[in-house]
């Protein structure tokens, strides 16, 4: 009887051999038909990327440049195809962003370039590409990662957008400060949202869901930080823009509510270890607008204090808030025209955009800092659920 001698893992060279005619099947099973919520949920993070890279290593090893090119082209085009088909599904976009980045890091880590080899083990150094320099393809993969990132941001914004005004401005959670309506009747406050109303909790739960999914997919921590910063920017910008257009949002009590909501967002950052990602700083215009709603607005000293406090707001924004400011009761006066003129005079030498509203379409430029993996390619085993039995571990 033939004896099956299992090979020891240290005999494997961390490559996957495949036939040229199986390339289409490879990209179909690994990319086009792979469901992030299906079999992929149990995979080690980045496994599709490692598998593609190990196939690439073999094509490189046998010195077949055509095979290398077609594998890279098919993989890239397949990723683009699946993102075109399911581009509004956050999980799909996040999954392929994480894997595209991992693939890019593998191309660097095993390029043979000393700059990327500092953290390699001796075994990993044995696995560098043999014959081809793929620096130009790295640029293409990087461009692809940027596109996927931008798609991810749009996807998240579409989900967050309907929640922001309701959760940050309209829903009142602080008991007793909602004040009195202009008619003199006390407003009904409730800690329970009306059906269909988004609350701050809705926003926080959604942010947690995004964060959890990205972590599960093995997204680089540095990339998660950039995503969260962008999310906070959009929350701050949409909230501020709404405030700048609504008189009913410009009161002392609204200022209080906004400051409370911002503190909850900061608490969320603290809880996730994201206090240094730059997200809090993106809320500064909103924070200052909320403070402006609460400070005194009568004397020259008040004007000086406002001008030094509101460094992140434009003159147009400060003036608008002051014009819209609505006193909570009949004892408080509206902001006088003279006071607003004082503010404008003090700020006339500022060099700034005359724009009133924040740019909600702005996306911070993204970077993908090199993040090598400690995973040993020769230890990777492919689960049968991926239907890649035609690949041979070498």
């Amino acid at each position: 009887h033939p004896v099956n001698i299992p090979r020891r893992e240290k005999d494997f060279q961390g490559m996957l051999e495949y036939k040229k005619e199986d390339e289409l099947k490879l990209v179909k099973n690994l990319i086009l038909e792979l469901k992030p919520r299906g079999v992929a949920v149990n995979l080690i993070p980045g496994l599709p990327a490692y598998i593609l890279f190990m196939c690439l290593r073999h094509a490189d090893y046998v010195n077949d440049d055509q095979k290398v090119r077609t594998l890279l082209t098919s993989s890239i085009n397949s990723i683009k195809k699946i993102l075109k088909k399911r581009g509004d599904d956050f999980e799909t976009v996040s999954f392929w962003l994480a894997n595209t980045c991992r693939f890019l890091h593998c191309l660097k880590q095993y390029s043979g370039d000393e700059a990327f080899m500092k953290h390699n083990t001796p075994k990993q150094n044995e696995h560098t590409l043999s014959n081809f320099d793929l620096a130009e393809y790295r640029q293409v993969i990087s461009d692809l990662a940027i596109q996927i990132y931008q798609q991810l941001i749009k996807c998240m914004e579409n989900i967050l957008q309907p929640m922001i005004v309701s959760g940050m401005l309209e829903h009142e959670t602080i008991q007793g400060v909602s004040g009195v309506k202009p008619t003199g009747l006390r407003k009904r406050t409730s800690s329970i949202a009306d059906e269909g109303t988004y609350t701050l909790d809705s926003i926080l739960r959604q942010l947690s869901a995004f964060h959890s999914t990205m972590c599960q997919h093995g997204t680089d921590p540095e990339l998660i930080k950039q995503v969260v910063k962008q999310q906070f920017y959009i929350i701050g910008a949409v909230t501020l823009n709404n405030l700048l257009l609504r008189k009913d949002m410009c009161s002392w009590s609204k200022g209080m509510q906004i400051r409370y909501n911002v503190s909850q967002l900061e608490e969320w950052l603290r809880d996730k270890g994201l206090m240094t990602c730059g997200a809090k700083e993106t809320l500064e215009p909103l924070i200052q607008a909320a403070q402006l709603l609460q400070v005194k607005k009568k004397t020259d000293e008040d004007a000086e204090a406002i001008c030094s406090m509101c460094q992140a707001l434009t003159t147009a924004q400060i003036v608008k808030v002051l014009n819209l400011y609505t006193p909570v009761n009949e004892f408080e006066e509206r902001v006088s025209v003279a006071f607003i003129r004082t503010i404008q005079t003090r700020l006339r030498d500022r060099c700034e955009s005359p724009q009133l509203l924040m740019d909600t379409k702005m996306i911070y430029p993204v970077t993908f800092p090199f993040s090598p993996s400690s995973l040993a390619l020769e230890t990777i085993q492919i689960p049968s659920s991926l239907n890649l039995g035609f690949l041979t571990r070498v």
Binding site: D65, N77, F132, D133, E136, Q139, V140
Partner: peptide
């Protein structure tokens, strides 16, 4: 691979060029 032998740089199309190649391949196939 002998350490002294340099790797061959593979020229790559841009992302847009790859997409155009892909579109024309899909149009050609039945």
């Amino acid at each position: 691979r002998p350490p002294s032998r340099p790797r061959i740089l593979l020229k790559a199309p841009t992302l847009a060029e790859m997409e155009e190649m892909n579109i024309s391949e899909e149009e050609e196939s039945p």
